[in-house]
Design a protein around this nucleic acid. Structure first.
Lengths: 319, 319
DNA sequence: CTGTTAGCGCATTCAC
DNA sequence: GTGAATGCGCTAACAG
């Protein structure tokens, strides 16, 4: 495989000149420029990116941290990130963490040691104090409201959207409303819990701890929720489900258990995934692909920015 | 950030010795080894992988080519690949092709130019003759029967599994059986088409071209199938659906259109995705995660190997 | 066992 | 406009 030296020899110029045309610098005569192009064509030259990386300290690689790659939520996010990466000639390095802190730190370390240019954290597990140790090594962008933290972010206002959905349900006459959430830690979960409490207070509704269902991440988790509900003396009449996957699971399981939706239980999902459309689930649309695209853009910028995306209620037939 | 030279200085040894302990070479006295460790600890040393890559010509990066990252089929495959990559301290570089040939060639070119060590092609679009041009630049592994091609592969026998499912349906009394397929090109599709024809011949059943539904990749595509079927004078009584996603879409759409399953139409999906379990869809289980794991292993081996995985019929309630 | 030295392929001063 | 020279951080003969 030809290298820059070979090209220089073939084109009868110096290595520097080759490097200049390679990087589109001005101040190269048209004649030499063409000679270099010719030589590159003939020898099917291609830069050795490893050398470029070592020399420049840049890798054109962006790390993406996510818990699982096989979850539609992250799939959509990744789709948006990947789309933009292709456009900008960046490649993505995947860090599948399974929510293990060490995995996330591995990614952070790669940033620290210049193995990637920036890091996109789709779902954070490390504390801010840990992450702050890595500020300055390169952009780290998040998919949550980073508040005062010195990191870019693209996010939705989970407090607001949760309230919107909750009041929508209440306006339809529901008084016993519960919700399903993925993790009980995490900023997003905290915000939603707060929104829930504030809603209850405002509407003067009692707080039922058993109306909160945790560990609702995957389709299968919906079954669990349904089985818990069927065993309740006073089950909720409506459920806010923070993932369309789980909402779909609940819908399917309800069907199997002859529980009618929305008569016996109303459901609002989140994300507006294809599955919610197919199954007619009312949902809060989160523009995940667009968020992904924006996350990528922020990761290749040196300044910090915050971008809030809107959530839209999509009415279908489960409320 | 300290480099190998600094460490050498601190530990009072040569660069080579540092490199040796770095790479666990023998022939280093315990004393010096410990001195180096000490220095590394003190300075929080970390290798610059770009330098390692340039020097060794290896990147510890494996490329993964797939059409979409947000499809559960590829999500599961990716899950298996990622799992094994983490174990072996490799990182994954994603190539989302959207089935565009140029994207796949980009990946191939990265292999050629040593930017990645190997390539895993989850779904091929390029012709074998194109791909053969890249043989020798590094391992390329496929998720399909590579036949005489000089590339490793992990795959399932689509001919066989299609036949199994088809005869299962026929044994249940079905005579009008159709199938839904993703792409009409691709080796897997060809094999299934062949299996279908052979089955028809063997059972002396007529061939209805309208019983073949193409472009069935996503959940939403199921709607289409159902609407086509409802407009047929003589609709099929059973459907083989090469993706659980589409099968789920068909099930949901049937429900919405008051078509009862399996009474009016029987369905067999493929993959055994969570959704098929939740919706009680009979399916042909393909061990995607395991295939992913094996694909990774093959990608870091220098010899060529072929591994066929078994497909298992999982009976649920749609037949 | 240990150190010296020569690359790996490219970007980038700096001088002409 | 152009090129010689230096360095990025590490590996791997080779010599001792």
């Amino acid at each position: 495989m030809a290298n820059i030296k070979d090209i220089a020899k073939m084109a009868n110029v110096s290595i520097t000149t080759v490097s200049r045309v390679l990087n589109n610098h001005p101040y190269v005569s048209q004649k030499k420029r063409e000679a270099v192009w010719q030589a590159m064509k003939e020898s099917n030259y291609q830069k050795n990116l490893n050398a470029v990386h070592l020399s420049t300290g840049k890798t054109h690689l962006i790390g993406v941290v996510l818990p699982f790659s096989n979850h539609p939520y992250f799939g959509l996010l990744l789709e948006g990130i990947a789309e933009e990466a292709v456009k900008n000639n960046y490649k993505l390095v995947l860090f599948q963490t399974n929510y293990e802190e060490t995995r996330e730190i591995e990614a952070l370390d790669m940033l620290k040691h210049k193995q990637i240019d920036a890091l996109i954290v789709c779902s954070r597990i490390c504390s801010w104090s840990t992450i702050n140790d890595y500020a300055g090594y390169g952009p780290i962008v998040f998919c949550e409201d980073t508040q005062e933290q010195p990191f870019s972010a693209t996010f939705v206002d989970h407090y607001k959207s949760f309230q919107t959905a909750l009041h929508y349900l209440a306006d339809k006459g529901h008084k016993k409303i519960g919700y399903c959430i993925g993790r009980n830690s995490g900023a997003n979960s905290t915000n939603r819990a707060l929104a829930y409490k504030d809603f209850l207070t405002k509407r003067k509704l009692p707080f039922h701890p058993e109306y909160i269902f945790e560990q609702c991440l995957h389709l299968e988790d919906g079954e669990n929720v349904v089985s818990k509900i069927t065993n309740m003396k006073e089950p909720p009449t409506a459920l806010l489900v923070t993932s369309d996957q789980v909402a779909a699971g609940i819908a399917a399981s309800s069907l199997a258990n002859k529980i009618s939706i929305p008569q016996e239980i109303a459901i609002i999902g989140f994300d507006n995934q294809p599955i919610s459309k197919v199954m007619g689930i009312t949902t809060m649309e989160i523009p995940l692909v667009e968020i992904g695209r924006n996350l990528f853009s922020q990761s290749v910028q040196s300044h910090i920015s915050y971008k809030e995306m809107d959530v839209t209620l999509i009415e279908r037939s489960t409320v």
